[in-house]
Amino acid sequence: MVGKEHILIDRNITLDEINVLIRHENNSRVLKRLYFVKFRFLGDSVEEAATKVGVTKKTGYYWQENWNKGGYAALIPNFGGGRKSKLTDNQITELRILLDRKDYWTTREVLELVKEKYGVEYSQKQIGVILHSFNMYHSKPYILDYRRPENAEEILKKLIEAVPAYIGPDDQYIIGFLDESSPQTKANTQRLWSFKKPLMTKNTDYIKANAFAFYSLNGRNLIDFMESSKAENVCEFLVKIVEQNPKAKIILILDNSRSHHADKTVRKARELEITLVFLPPYSPDLNPVEFVWKTIKREVSVRFIQSKEHLRNIIKNEFTKVEKSLSFAKKWMETFNPQIKSVIC
């Protein structure tokens, strides 16, 4: 199957004939489409031609498809008379289906899709209302590293190997996640609603707090602060996890940072009878505590931070508010094998 990017523009007329059409065209909408076709004739990619006439690549593909099907006549917008004021119920339904065919859209892309396909011009605010009615999310995307293994969830199931086939009635296993983060005063991650551009007075001094967190599915959680994240700091935090969860066998899930893999860390974990299970590389989304940190950072971003001690107190208080919720691990728990469930139930 030929991908869209490899579909060529249909040269059913010559470039000179395109220029003649451009000289005699009075409709500004059609003129823009004709220039797009001309740029494609001259060797521009769809994206390059679309950029030159000020539309999205998706709109460029839509115009090219119309041109290839019907030439000049197919470039003329298929709505007559004046501009339509709004979409019909059937068009709203169709639009929802169209939007579901792609993972994400910008407001501008949807605005142009509606204008090109239905001849209706909405403001960005009106488009937003429609998209909210579809229960679509409007948020910053969670970035996945391109090096993340496609079978990351499958690799994660190596947890099964960390649990014995038989668990005695007196055995207590705790499954938890470890991660470090450094929330700081200059973070600006919270989306805010306002009747005008929101302004916020903050302490712009650079203050950060290097924090360690243990987020557990069935044990006692822990947050603490260290000056750095070296192997000795990790070892110190492992000791504190065990002190919080005495007489339990701990399965600790963590990422592949150098300090986690350090010989000193591995020896200390073995000494404390902690089983380390490392996440697949470049897969922070598989560590629920990452989302705990995200929640904490949003709160930090809208607070006035007076000092490092003040920042630490805010982080600790927010962690205390959210630590009991297992919603951060909901998706992760869906990958559990029944054997793993038997450990935490």
Results as ranks from 00 to 15, higher is better:
2 V>D: 11
9 I>H: 03
10 D>H: 13
12 N>M: 11
12 N>S: 14
12 N>C: 11
16 D>N: 11
16 D>L: 10
17 E>I: 11
24 H>S: 12
28 S>G: 05
32 K>M: 10
33 R>P: 06
35 Y>A: 00
35 Y>E: 06
41 F>L: 06
43 G>V: 08
45 S>P: 07
51 T>L: 13
60 G>S: 10
60 G>F: 13
60 G>K: 08
61 Y>N: 10
63 W>E: 07
69 K>D: 08
69 K>N: 11
70 G>C: 07
71 G>H: 06
74 A>P: 02
74 A>F: 10
75 L>E: 07
76 I>K: 15
83 R>I: 14
84 K>G: 05
84 K>L: 12
84 K>Q: 08
85 S>K: 15
85 S>T: 13
87 L>R: 07
90 N>P: 00
91 Q>G: 05
97 I>Y: 12
103 D>Y: 11
106 T>Q: 11
106 T>H: 11
113 L>E: 07
115 K>D: 14
116 E>T: 08
117 K>C: 06
117 K>H: 08
118 Y>G: 02
121 E>Y: 12
121 E>T: 15
122 Y>C: 01
127 I>Y: 02
127 I>L: 01
127 I>F: 01
131 L>C: 08
133 S>L: 06
134 F>I: 02
136 M>Y: 13
145 D>T: 01
147 R>G: 01
154 E>F: 08
154 E>L: 09
158 K>R: 14
158 K>H: 12
161 E>W: 06
164 P>Y: 06
166 Y>C: 02
166 Y>V: 14
167 I>E: 03
169 P>K: 11
170 D>I: 03
170 D>A: 04
172 Q>W: 05
181 S>L: 04
181 S>N: 10
183 P>Y: 07
184 Q>C: 15
186 K>F: 09
186 K>R: 10
188 N>M: 03
189 T>K: 08
191 R>V: 10
191 R>A: 06
192 L>G: 00
194 S>G: 06
196 K>A: 08
197 K>Y: 10
201 T>F: 10
201 T>S: 05
205 D>F: 09
221 N>M: 05
221 N>V: 05
221 N>G: 08
222 L>C: 08
222 L>V: 13
223 I>R: 04
226 M>D: 10
232 E>F: 12
233 N>L: 01
234 V>M: 09
235 C>P: 05
239 V>D: 13
240 K>M: 12
242 V>W: 05
245 N>V: 09
250 I>H: 07
251 I>N: 03
251 I>F: 05
252 L>F: 06
258 R>C: 02
259 S>D: 00
263 D>W: 10
268 K>I: 00
270 R>F: 04
272 L>S: 00
272 L>Y: 00
283 S>L: 04
284 P>S: 00
284 P>W: 02
285 D>V: 04
285 D>I: 03
285 D>S: 04
285 D>P: 01
289 V>G: 00
292 V>E: 02
292 V>N: 01
295 T>Q: 14
297 K>L: 04
302 V>T: 13
304 F>H: 09
305 I>Y: 09
305 I>S: 07
309 E>L: 12
310 H>F: 09
311 L>S: 05
311 L>N: 03
312 R>Q: 15
313 N>D: 14
313 N>Q: 15
319 F>I: 04
320 T>Q: 15
322 V>I: 13
325 S>L: 01
328 F>I: 04
329 A>E: 04
331 K>C: 08
333 M>D: 00
337 N>V: 10
339 Q>C: 06
342 S>G: 14
